[in-house]
Design a protein around this nucleic acid. Sequence first.
DNA 1: GTCTATAGTGAGATAGAC
DNA 2: GTCTATCTCACTATAGAC
Lengths: 215, 215
Amino acid sequence: MSALPSSRDKICDVAEALFARRGYSGVGLREVADEVGLGKSSLFHHFRSKAQLYCEVLDRALGRIAARLEPVLAASSPPEQRLERWIEVVVDALAEQPTTARLLLRALFEEEQFAQQPPPELAQAEATLAQLIAGLERLLSEGVARGVFREVSVPHTVQSLIGASVYHFASAEVGERILGGPLFGAGAVASRRRELMGLFLNGLAARPGPVSDTR
Amino acid sequence: MSALPSSRDKICDVAEALFARRGYSGVGLREVADEVGLGKSSLFHHFRSKAQLYCEVLDRALGRIAARLEPVLAASSPPEQRLERWIEVVVDALAEQPTTARLLLRALFEEEQFAQQPPPELAQAEATLAQLIAGLERLLSEGVARGVFREVSVPHTVQSLIGASVYHFASAEVGERILGGPLFGAGAVASRRRELMGLFLNGLAARPGPVSDTR
DNA sequence: GTCTATAGTGAGATAGAC
DNA sequence: GTCTATCTCACTATAGAC
C-alpha cells in the first residue's frame, strides 16, 4: 500500500520535519511548499489552513505510536513485563523517526495556539493521546494492585515515563552534548532502552529488592 | 534590593511569561510592549533585538536555578543525600516560577534559531547550563564510584532527571489532565518531590535493596 | 526614555486562469 | 491540481521629534 505517495502525504512529511524543528509559528507555508516543490497556494487545496495541516501532522505522529503500543497495552502478561515492552516500543518508535519526539514534546506547548478555534483533527489527536495514557495508567495500577510495584502515584509515574522517554529523544544538541555523541545511533538507542528499564523497573519494584531481568 | 523594578526588568518579566507560553517565534514585540505599557519602539532602547531580549530572559532563568543549585552541588555530603537535595531544589525552583520549566524546555528547541548569529548572552546561558550538568554528573559519578548507586550510565541518568523534572512542570494542560488537578498546587508539588525521590533513589540504589528514607 | 511614523519584509489566505 | 496575482495584516527594526 501507498507505493506512490500523494501530494498530500508529501506535504505532511515535509511539514512534520519542519514543525518538529521549528515549531508551529516558526514554520512558514512558503518553506513547506518550496521543499515539496509546489506553489504556496497549492497547499490550500489539500488543507484548509496551516492549523489544520499541523493538527493532521500531529495526529499522524500520535497514531503511529498508538498503533505500536496497542498490542502492548492490550496484552495480559504481568505488569512488569508489559512495562518493559512499553519502554522498548516507545524508545524504538521515537528512535526510528527522529522527528516524532520533538513534534510531540512541542505539541504540549502549542495546544494553546488552537484554543480559540480548534480544528477537528486536534480533537482526534487528543483522543488518541488520552487512550495511550489510560492504557499506561491501567498497566501501572495493576502492578501496584498486585503488589509487584511500590505504592507509587500512578499519574506521577506516567509523567516521569513520558518525561524520561520523550524528552530524551527531543533533547537535540543539549542531549548530544550530555551523551557525548549522537542521540539516534544504534548504540545510544540500545543504551537508552536499557537505562530506562533499569531505572523504572528498579525504581518501581516493591520493597524487598530490585527486580531481576525477566529474560 | 531591587525594590523598584526598572523598565528593563519589567520588559524581561513580561517577555519571560510570553516566551514561555508561546515560544520565540510565537511572540511579537508588539504584545510585549503593550503588556508592559510601552510603545513597541521603546523596547529597542533597552535591547538591541528580539533575539537579545530572548537570550537575556533565558540566561536570567537559568541563573536563578544555578544560584539555588550551587550550594547543593558544592556540598560534601554523601551522593544520595545530595541527589535528594538536588531534586528538592529543582522541583521547588520550577514550582515557584511556573514559567521557568516551559521556558527552559522550549529553549532546547529554539537554539537552532540563533545558530547563525548567536547573541553573546546565549553563550553565557550555555555556560551556565554546562556547569549545572557537570555538577550533576559529578554527583552521580561519585555515587557510582562509591558503590551507593548501581552502575548506571551517568549521562543517561542526567537525561532522565532533567526529563522527569523539567517536563513535568512544563506539561501544562496535558499534565493537569494526567494528574487530575493543577500542577503547581502545594500538594501536587510535594507529591512530585516525593515521587521523584522515590523513583530515583530506589531506581539508582545499588543491588541489595531499596534505599530507605534518610530523614 | 518614550513617542509617532514608517520602512521593508514576509506571513496566511483568496480569486480565478489554465 | 497547480499556477500567478493579490489582499490584508503583522512583524522586526529604524529615524527622528519631544
